Computed example of a mutant assay.
Amino acid sequence: MERRRFAAGIAAAAAAPALLGAAPAPSHGDDRLRKAMRAALGDELDDRATARAVEPHIHDIGFDWHPPTAPLGRIDFLVAYGFGNRPPAGGGDPTKVMYEPGPVNEELADTVARVRAHRDVPVYAQWEIARFLKSKYRMTDVTSVEPVVAPDGTLTYLSTDGVAAQVVEARKKLPEGIGTAGVIGFRDHVKRCVQTTNDRGMKAYAPAGFEMPGTYDPESGQAWTRRRDLYLVHDMTAQWTVLREKLIARASSGNS
């Protein structure tokens, strides 16, 4: 019976529409789901204590896709993370020829422009987005985070963490300090973008009141960004990997 209630809770959570750009208010339904998750996992493991320890991680990674938000007045700069791309229009060796930014990154650039219209702050944008900010909007004060080019011309595209690392190094050099980041990212990616930005030593939030793009590109050059069911597995895997590293580091240092 408890597992049937757990399954019903999962279905209800999956069917509930996401209110993007704002953290969800706690609900009785969410409380019931979490209680059912703990009970079902405790039965399965025959270990209530471990179920209580593990359930928050399962809930956070599998059932909560909302980033923390902050009003624009608290944001000192924007970081825009790319999502997907398109294969090189002219063909050629894809390891040495730049991919095309693609339509999703244009939508992300549009989102950056909407935010910048309300608060004129510096922008650090992954190159796919920066291309549109400069060509479509003629936007100034934009730092493009580019792929790494090896001496033989081979391109290495940066991960989400790689982009965050570049941004924090640039911000450390400023006399006013790092400041607080407003994060722009694809709807199903933005929570992890905020987490990654925070993990790199920057206070980070999604700008409150702005909806993030959420339409997938079936022609993306990255297979995992072509459809939602596949991307969610990809993103959850990335979140689990980071959590695993944090928990192991904590245990290795003697902290519980």
Rank of each mutant, 00 (worst) to 15 (best):
residue 1 M to I: 05
residue 4 R to I: 12
residue 6 F to A: 11
residue 6 F to D: 04
residue 9 G to V: 03
residue 11 A to T: 08
residue 11 A to C: 04
residue 13 A to V: 05
residue 14 A to C: 10
residue 14 A to S: 05
residue 15 A to Q: 07
residue 17 P to E: 06
residue 18 A to M: 11
residue 18 A to K: 14
residue 21 G to D: 01
residue 22 A to G: 04
residue 25 A to L: 15
residue 25 A to N: 06
residue 26 P to C: 02
residue 27 S to F: 09
residue 28 H to C: 02
residue 29 G to A: 15
residue 32 R to V: 11
residue 32 R to G: 00
residue 32 R to Q: 10
residue 33 L to C: 00
residue 37 M to T: 08
residue 38 R to F: 00
residue 40 A to C: 13
residue 41 L to P: 14
residue 42 G to E: 07
residue 48 R to T: 12
residue 50 T to A: 09
residue 54 V to P: 03
residue 54 V to Y: 04
residue 56 P to Y: 03
residue 58 I to K: 04
residue 59 H to V: 13
residue 59 H to A: 15
residue 63 F to P: 00
residue 69 T to K: 03
residue 70 A to S: 14
residue 72 L to H: 05
residue 73 G to P: 00
residue 73 G to A: 13
residue 77 F to S: 11
residue 78 L to A: 06
residue 79 V to T: 07
residue 79 V to L: 13
residue 81 Y to E: 13
residue 82 G to F: 05
residue 86 R to I: 00
residue 86 R to H: 12
residue 88 P to I: 04
residue 90 G to Y: 01
residue 91 G to R: 11
residue 93 D to E: 02
residue 95 T to L: 14
residue 95 T to I: 01
residue 96 K to A: 06
residue 97 V to N: 10
residue 99 Y to F: 15
residue 99 Y to L: 14
residue 100 E to P: 13
residue 100 E to Q: 15
residue 102 G to R: 05
residue 102 G to V: 00
residue 104 V to L: 07
residue 106 E to M: 10
residue 107 E to V: 03
residue 109 A to N: 05
residue 110 D to L: 12
residue 114 R to N: 03
residue 114 R to M: 09
residue 115 V to E: 10
residue 119 R to C: 03
residue 119 R to I: 08
residue 121 V to S: 02
residue 125 A to V: 07
residue 125 A to S: 05
residue 127 W to D: 12
residue 128 E to N: 10
residue 129 I to Q: 01
residue 131 R to D: 08
residue 131 R to M: 10
residue 132 F to L: 01
residue 133 L to F: 02
residue 133 L to W: 02
residue 134 K to L: 15
residue 138 R to D: 11
residue 141 D to F: 10
residue 141 D to Y: 09
residue 142 V to L: 06
residue 145 V to A: 01
residue 146 E to I: 07
residue 148 V to I: 14
residue 150 A to V: 05
residue 151 P to C: 04
residue 153 G to L: 03
residue 153 G to K: 13
residue 153 G to Q: 07
residue 154 T to N: 07
residue 156 T to W: 00
residue 160 T to W: 00
residue 160 T to V: 02
residue 161 D to C: 00
residue 162 G to Y: 11
residue 163 V to P: 03
residue 167 V to D: 08
residue 171 R to Y: 02
residue 174 L to S: 03
residue 176 E to R: 15
residue 177 G to T: 11
residue 180 T to I: 15
residue 181 A to N: 07
residue 184 I to L: 12
residue 186 F to Q: 07
residue 188 D to K: 07
residue 188 D to A: 10
residue 189 H to V: 05
residue 190 V to R: 10
residue 192 R to A: 05
residue 192 R to C: 06
residue 198 N to P: 00
residue 199 D to T: 06
residue 200 R to S: 13
residue 200 R to K: 12
residue 206 A to L: 09
residue 209 G to W: 07
residue 211 E to T: 13
residue 214 G to E: 03
residue 214 G to P: 01
residue 214 G to R: 01
residue 219 E to F: 01
residue 220 S to F: 01
residue 222 Q to S: 05
residue 222 Q to K: 02
residue 225 T to K: 11
residue 228 R to H: 07
residue 229 D to T: 14
residue 230 L to A: 14
residue 233 V to N: 00
residue 234 H to A: 06
residue 234 H to F: 15
residue 234 H to K: 12
residue 235 D to I: 12
residue 235 D to R: 13
residue 236 M to W: 11
residue 238 A to M: 03
residue 240 W to I: 13
residue 240 W to A: 11
residue 246 K to V: 10
residue 247 L to E: 09
residue 249 A to L: 08
residue 252 S to T: 14
residue 255 N to R: 15
residue 256 S to M: 08
